[in-house]
Design a protein around this nucleic acid. Structure first.
Lengths: 167, 167
DNA sequence: TTGTATGCAAATAATTTGCACCAAA
DNA sequence: TTTGGTGCAAATTATTTGCATACAA
């Protein structure tokens, strides 16, 4: 095992668990069974997820690794504080995604299938900083969501329309 | 009175009430006391607002123009459908702002005072369309929020720090 | 008159909290 | 042994809904 850890596309020197342990130490918090379980399950996929979909993947009650719903909420907040996850709101619920070891990006959101598609734009970062300068605003971050219809949903619509035309 | 109506910076040919009445007609909905009252209060300010702050401005129960909370929610949805308001989520609640007769814009959000500052960027629209093209995504809209600290809050911090330095 | 709209109270949904018990360091 | 952590049940918050009544067209 090398001394660096690859997640997505960015090289980082610690695994998510190691980094989280460091965070816990620095705050006098404990590395519990539940926290370790959460790290395992959250960082074994790179999808976006909400609390419900995470709990579906987590072990059930009475199985090893089970984490209660309140603790899931509490631990996700810790992950965000630790810089492991980012969180945003979509359709009235919190959505989480990997931050640590994962390249910065923004999203297109399909209003039909409700899927998120990632993209990265250097121009956006430049634009963001320019706006900050113009407005004397000290920028710490941003969130851009482009809404619309993804290719797949758009072509499904077209297929349906063609069928209707034949009737 | 001229036959065009100026709100913010964009000229439109109908007042918000007239436009809403048109919308209601087209859907076989009725122009009620409550809907008229809401139009009055919502379009007499240009601020961002959430349901609670709107209800604070609205007449109290037993006063003329009173609208019950469920009807406030229902009517705001109608305003959005009618293209009079836009809605987005911030800190777990719905925030509304004028759309009709108001120029397209995005926001800087100060994490200290939680105020929203508007800006407009043509570059952003171009960027948005380019991303859509690159990703074969049919763009219908976007939402950009730049987070950080506004000038006022930043300078307050500096003042506090200076004072602390003197102790 | 006829169905849409409203207010009330109750239901939902997502998230948070109080607290007695449990366990990491 | 000493705090911090957890699960449970209950509380909160924002929003939505069912339904009997009220009212616009």
């Amino acid at each position: 095992m090398s001394d660096s850890y690859s997640l997505g596309e960015v090289e980082v020197s610690l695994s998510p668990l190691e980094r989280f342990e460091e965070f816990l130490q620095s705050r006098g918090m404990r590395c519990t069974e539940q926290r370790r379980s959460m790290v395992n399950y959250v960082f074994s996929h790179h999808d976006h997820f909400d609390v419900d979909s995470l709990i579906e993947r987590l072990p059930r009650k009475s199985e090893p690794g089970y984490v209660s719903r309140p603790t899931v909420y509490r631990t996700l907040i810790e992950f965000v504080d630790a810089g492991l996850l980012r969180c945003f709101e979509l359709d009235g619920r919190h959505v989480y995604e990997h931050d640590y070891g994962y390249p910065e990006h923004d999203h297109c959101y399909c209003e039909k299938c409700r899927k998120l598609f990632e993209f990265h734009s250097e121009d956006l970062l430049a634009l963001r900083d320019k706006v900050g300068k113009d407005m004397s605003f000290r920028v710490t971050g941003h969130r851009l969501i482009i809404t619309g219809v993804c290719q797949e949903c758009a072509s499904q619509n077209r297929r349906k329309k063609r069928k209707q035309d034949l009737l």
